[in-house]
């Protein structure tokens, strides 16, 4: 079952034996995870299990934290992203990220979404307009902001801000979108809208989402990885992992025995 699924979908990110140290503290004890193209993968686990830390390895956001050391290999379409020659800026354009707190810039909605394009040197006004509109539509926020495109993005609600942030990432047209607990600061209705957004875009993007919310993982993801104390406990098709987990820790966590 597992094998056939693997042969069907192309693996876009493969990681092998990823260890991460904050100074002398080992936060990740060797993680092997592969992500298939155009799939939604969810990372679940209790707080402090290393799921966000692992996610941030995939676009090298951990580089910003002093004293971090990473060993093992992470490959994006067969290229090691930690190789010395890799252009981090280019990598982050291909692997976008949405954060836990909605963090739009204090600019207008339009400028927020156009930000990445302007960085890439896009000047053509009509192209900018078109990409901004497409991205906002993909993020299912277009109808709510189309009349206020030039208002400050901060004047919208948290859920709307988060979808603007999703649109901002999509505008750059990355291959992979990482989401670090994107709905944990939002109310259920806004969360549902974000989930719909993700389901809408999955045929174009590979999505990896860290979530605290197990129902969310089971609703939207194709595959789920369960992490515990910096170890990967189980990684399988979401249905299988939730209905029939192989490991006892997984079933204990899913049944709320801890975490």
């Amino acid at each position: 079952m597992e094998k056939t699924a693997n042969t069907k979908t192309k693996q876009i990110i493969t990681s092998e034996d990823v260890h991460l140290y904050y100074g002398s503290f080992e936060a990740l004890h060797g993680i092997d995870l592969n992500f298939g193209e155009h799939e939604i993968a969810a990372l679940i686990g209790p707080s402090g299990c290393g799921k966000s830390t692992y996610l941030r390895c995939l676009n090298r956001m951990n580089d910003l934290i002093p004293g971090v050391k990473i060993t093992g290999s992470i490959e994006l379409e067969g290229n090691d992203i930690y190789a010395p020659k890799v252009d981090v800026v280019e990598l982050r354009k291909r692997v976008g990220m949405v954060f836990q707190q909605p963090n739009p810039f204090p600019f207008s909605v339009y400028e927020n979404v156009a930000y990445g394009l302007r960085l890439a040197g896009v000047r053509d006004k009509s192209l900018l307009d078109e990409r901004v509109e497409t991205s906002l539509k993909q993020a299912a926020i277009w109808d709510e902001v189309k009349d206020n495109l030039y208002d400050s993005a901060l004047s919208f609600s948290g859920g709307q801000q988060q979808r603007i942030c999703v649109a901002r990432v999509l505008a750059v047209q990355p291959e992979v979108v990482l989401l670090d607990e994107p709905t944990s600061a939002l109310d259920p209705i806004s969360s549902a809208k974000i989930e719909d957004t993700l389901l809408n875009i999955r045929d174009k993007y590979t999505i990896i989402i860290v979530t605290h919310n197990m129902q969310q993982a089971s609703r939207i993801s194709d595959r789920t990885a369960f992490l515990l104390n910096g170890n990967l406990v189980e990684y399988d098709k979401t249905e299988k992992l939730f209905m029939n987990p192989e490991k006892e820790e997984t079933s204990d966590y899913l049944n709320g025995k801890f975490g």
Binding site: M61, R92, K93, F99, P106, F107, Y115, R118, L119
Partner: peptide, 27 residues
């Protein structure tokens, strides 16, 4: 200027100078 503006900008593929120039100084 909140740290998360900087992370957001860097995660979108901005260089440090672009981040300083377009986000930090503007904010």
């Amino acid at each position: 200027v909140p740290m998360y503006y900087r992370s957001a900008s860097l995660a979108l593929g901005a260089t440090r100078w672009q981040t300083i120039h377009k986000v930090v100084l503007r904010a």
